[in-house]
Design a protein around this nucleic acid. Structure first.
Lengths: 260, 260
DNA sequence: GCAAAAGTGTTTAAACTACACCCATGC
DNA sequence: GCATGGGTGTAGTTTAAACACTTTTGC
């Protein structure tokens, strides 16, 4: 063990959910959009940054796994259970917190849309549109930007969009998720081909009745193909949700800025 | 600050360099290969894992930046100065170290080939072929595997290969780096087109004389185009070396296993 | 039958691969 | 001149985008 004092370890999480995109009061929010990305923030009840909005998180207990601590603090503060959880980055700049050195291992999570609707909301917990946040505590604005970038690049080559949906879903629903995340229209025909050709979908044979038009088929994701080479994926990334959609792709760029 | 005890913070680095690929004594090493990936390891002088080989690193001082600590411990133990340094992942499993909870923020680094040749080597520092390592201390084998995977995916869409070379270089040299990292032959003609079309190279006008054949031209990398959106890349990734070679790509998979 | 979304087919362009071929130098 | 790697040209294949068209339901 070390002979000199070290920094304090914290764990925080950026949680994303899709909700009806009413730009309620937020300038610049797309009014007619169907779904947009939202995330829950908690109001700080202590200094520093008292009363500011911040990412849910907490100190890391000595006997708890990193991902477990992320899931726990997330549940305790917002009542949410993530369907997808992955380590994002570790922020440890000296100036992050005005009160001593804090190193934050940050995770990002996706929760199902229907669960997000039931999430605890109160004086100290509120949902915000991911693209129009107020100034947050510490360097949390930068962290959210990075998480957003990661989500948007990752939907294109993995099947994490699944985490926003239930067990079965229509191709239109899956496409809506992609469109909401990427903020652009996607050709339904080409999307269908791409996603079916990936071999990750299975036709359940069932359809959704009651629509004012042709009933769409329901699909399900294939179980983990285990085609991913063992010992070749980081801990929390190694789930079925990370099977490549198109081709195994690499990691891009990003640069937060401030501390916390 | 927290009321309960937290884990201890450490910083480690996986350092890669290209060296002549003599499979000296290592079974399975490609004998005729020109260049292969090597990395320096340090022998542990303390329990746990006394006398085992491990990644260079150390405890994080309270008043030092994460990346700075990585570069410092790297310099102190191996005498190397990295030309590229980026955060890899934070490993914090409960069982990583037999003596208390240790959370390691791991970086990966690239050093120039000529500098690697001058690196300090002794009883407690030795170079190993990256693909044929002995059992290392803690979970360091898994960490190296992850770093290797990250390097190999990232050379294909960024220009980090640059970090293995000097200021100017021939296309053949750049291609050799790619071939060594990816472990496969690359068509010289197509490689030339791809890399010149990316717009990241500048013809210096000079050539290398003294070769027993047509003298190759020398190239240089363009300065940072600043085309990368601000506040959209993680701290250490936001260098000129991460400008997309082909297209901005995302992040794949990997999964270490054991602790350390 | 009509509107609307599901689902199929075709056309075009761009990107990548393979490989034939010419160029410039030292010996 | 001749061997060798530097450098250019080009045809074949694959991938993806754009868009016209057919199908199936509720009303």
């Amino acid at each position: 063990m070390p002979t000199t004092a070290s920094a304090t370890l914290a764990v925080s999480t950026v949680i994303f959910a899709l909700r009806p995109g009413t730009g309620a009061g937020i300038t610049g929010a797309p009014e007619g959009a169907l779904m947009t990305l939202w995330l829950p923030l908690v109001r700080r009840t202590r200094e520093p940054y008292l009363d500011s909005w911040a990412l849910p998180g907490g100190w890391l207990p000595e006997d708890e796994e990193l991902a477990t601590a992320a899931a726990r603090t997330l549940r305790e503060t917002t009542g949410l259970t993530p369907k997808y959880l992955e380590q994002l980055y570790t922020f440890g700049d000296l100036g992050r917190s005005p009160e001593g050195r804090v190193v934050s291992v940050v995770y990002w999570a996706l929760v199902q849309s229907d669960e997000a609707a039931l999430a605890a909301v109160g004086e100290n917990v509120r949902w915000f549109p991911a693209d129009h946040l107020p100034p947050l505590a510490f360097d949390h604005n930068s962290i959210v930007d990075y998480a957003l970038w990661r989500l948007r690049t990752k939907v294109e080559y993995s099947r994490i969009a699944h985490a926003f949906l239930g067990e079965t879903f229509t191709l239109a629903q899956l496409r809506e998720v992609h469109e909401a995340v990427l903020q652009r229209a996607i050709d339904p025909a080409n999307f269908r081909r791409t996603v079916t050709a990936s071999g990750t979908l299975v036709d359940t044979g069932e359809s959704v009745a009651g629509t004012p038009h042709r009933p769409p088929r329901l699909y399900r994701y294939t179980v983990t193909p285990d085609t991913v080479p063992p010992n070749t994926v980081p801990p929390d990334t190694a789930s079925a949700d990370t099977v490549p959609l198109r081709s195994p792709i690499p990691e891009p760029h990003f640069t937060p800025g401030a501390p916390a």
